[in-house]
Nucleic acid binder design. Structure first.
Length: 511
RNA sequence: GCCUCGGUAGUCUAGACCGGACAAGGAUAGCGGCCUUUCGAGCCGCGGACCCGGGUUCAAAUCCCGGCCGAGGCACCA
């Protein structure tokens, strides 16, 4: 079969299912980029998981593993698990509010998880597995200092504890669990091969001690001294939860090998692992540690600061979750790293926002224009030029005065105030009407600009570059919170909140 | 120092496993035009890439070897 040509296959398919023959003349629909097949996946028998550490909200880099895991589960009609990996109260202590942040981030993207699993609530599973590994002679308790073991690992030499009897290992382990060792005094190691060509795999650690008085776990009432390390907890839970496919970053490549020692030691079937490359976002620090540091230093206003690449920030700016999903599907599960450009994300997002966003005039850096002879006038303008069914808004000029953007007018030049009138700017805030209709203004290439009446709404637009005080047409106040609007000739923004005077604050998304 | 994985236009991606209609397709960004009461959307056109060097082959983006560059691991983090 694998020697059959494409033509032969097509012919065969045509015979079997004549209705599904692709029609040549059919205009090529822009096919949505699809995910490549998942190795070893069977419909209905795929279980994936997304396993964040709840120490921060999700960012675009995390979204890759998340979207892939959720999409593959959906694609194969399988199950999707959300697992919180909160077993390090010392170096990466869980942030109690982050659990909910992450749930919200995932929900915002439109995904539901079939199972939620919090590792810190299931520590006894890891203890049981460690006991079994010790009983099988596959693990031991090492009381070397970290530095000393590092040295032995480098040289490929065993430490004195490696040969300890099983009974001793077992009792030392119970001593770890019951608080008989302080931090750094003992660790459980997998017995692998001290001469393994990859030093990372030489007797890697399974469990260590964290002092609960110094580093209490926020969601553990009882004092707990022994915590699993990543390779142990991931292997135990992936097995227990029946995970069939693990989609994660390629920084876990050696972990996959480490985990296979546990899987084979326990006689478990190892899930198929697909490791994707890392994502970078143009000009933005994504790494949690960097962001946290900058946050502490007051550089950002919070995890949802519009300058950040967190999903929270993108959500606040009014991005469509579909845009993030599309981008992740485009990047796919391949092992290449990718530098995501904002332009690319904006372009995808625009496709979703453009057809649904109401148009409004918003003026930055305003200058008052007294238009001679304009007087009192009310115009009605569609909320969307291509969708009359969306309705329209009205803008009233009271006394011939409007605001335009300083940069849009030039003394002596014509300018078309959109949907209102064409004027010539005379300088000194004065303008006079010219008898040039909309069609003619287009054909003559006259600049068309947005404007607002003199009794405009004062709005703040929060952009990645800073907060801009602007004037908006009064009907913008009719838009509900969370609505995404298009500020004509500027870009998309989301209605975020009201300021102390009841005026809207908008978060800018992009052009 | 040891180990691993990558390298197609500015950016993202298809093709690579299974060499041949690939003088490399799509998207985005750029430029030009059309259209249009937005600097939006749409349409048309233009320019832009297989990291380098060897090898195998009638034929290499695709296979092999070497190099260069990039990323990651060598945590009592995940």
């Amino acid at each position: 079969m694998n020697s059959a040509s494409k033509e032969e296959l097509d012919a065969l398919i045509a015979k079997l299912a004549p209705l599904r023959v692709p029609q040549k003349e059919k205009p090529k629909e822009k096919e949505e980029r699809a995910l490549p097949p998942l190795p070893g996946a069977q419909r209905g028998a795929v279980v994936t998981r997304f396993a964040p550490n709840p120490d921060a909200p999700l960012h675009l880099g995390n979204a890759r593993a998340l979207v892939l895991s959720a999409e593959y589960a959906r694609l194969y009609e399988g199950k999707f698990i959300l697992r919180f990996e909160d077993t390090d109260p010392h170096i990466k202590p869980p942030l109690p509010e982050a659990y909910e942040w992450i749930r919200q981030d995932i929900t915002w993207l439109g995904y539901k998880w079939d199972v939620e699993w919090i590792q810190s609530q299931h520590l006894s599973n890891y203890y049981d597995t460690v006991r079994e590994l010790i009983r099988r002679g596959l693990a031991y308790v090492c009381t070397c200092t970290a530095e000393h073991f590092q040295e032995l690992r480098r040289k490929g030499e065993a430490c004195p504890h490696r040969g300890q009897p099983i009974s001793e290992a077992l009792s030392l382990f119970e001593k770890m669990v019951s608080g008989g060792f302080d931090e750094g005094q003992a660790v459980v190691r997998m017995r692998t091969d001290m001469k393994h060509q990859n030093p990372a795999l030489r007797d890697f650690p399974l469990m260590r001690v964290v002092n609960p008085d110094l580093h209490p776990h926020p969601s553990l009432k009882e004092k707990t001294w022994a915590f699993p390390l990543y390779n142990l907890s991931a292997a135990v839970d992936d097995h227990l939860l029946g995970v069939t496919h693990v989609l994660r970053g390629k920084e876990h490549m050696t972990n996959e090998q480490a985990q296979s020692y546990i899987y084979s030691g326990m006689g478990w079937k190892q899930p198929i692992s697909v490791e994707h490359g890392r994502l970078m976002l143009e000009g933005i620090p994504l790494s949690k540690s960097q962001v946290r540091k900058a946050l502490a230093g007051g550089l950002y206003n919070g995890w949802d600061d519009p300058r950040l690449g967190t999903l929270m920030a993108l959500r606040r700016r009014g991005f469509s979750p579909r845009a993030i999903i599309d981008l992740m599907i485009e990047v796919g599960p391949k092992p290449n790293d990718a530098m995501i450009s904002w332009d690319n994300l904006f372009a995808i997002d625009r496709k979703y926002l453009e057809p649904v966003s109401h148009r409004y005039f918003v003026v930055r850096d305003p200058i008052k224009l007294a238009v001679e002879g304009l007087g009192k006038k009310t115009v009605s303008i569609p909320l969307h030029p291509d969708h009359a069914e969306m309705g329209s808004r009205t803008v009233s000029v009271e006394n011939g005065e409007v605001y335009v953007q300083k940069e849009d007018i030039e003394k002596g030049k014509l300018v078309r105030l959109m949907d209102l009138v064409t004027v010539r700017y005379l300088g000194d805030g004065k303008a006079k009407i010219e008898d040039i209709g909309p069609e003619q203004s287009v054909s003559e290439g006259i600049k068309r600009v947005q404007w607002v009446p003199s009794f405009a709404l004062e709005v703040k637009v929060v952009t990645p570059e800073g907060i801009i005080q602007c004037l908006a047409e009064p009907s913008l106040a009719n838009e509900p919170k969370d609505a995404t609007v298009q500020m004509v000739r500027w870009g998309f923004a989301r209605i975020d909140s009201l300021d102390e005077y009841g005026n809207p604050i908008l978060y800018f998304a992009h052009h």
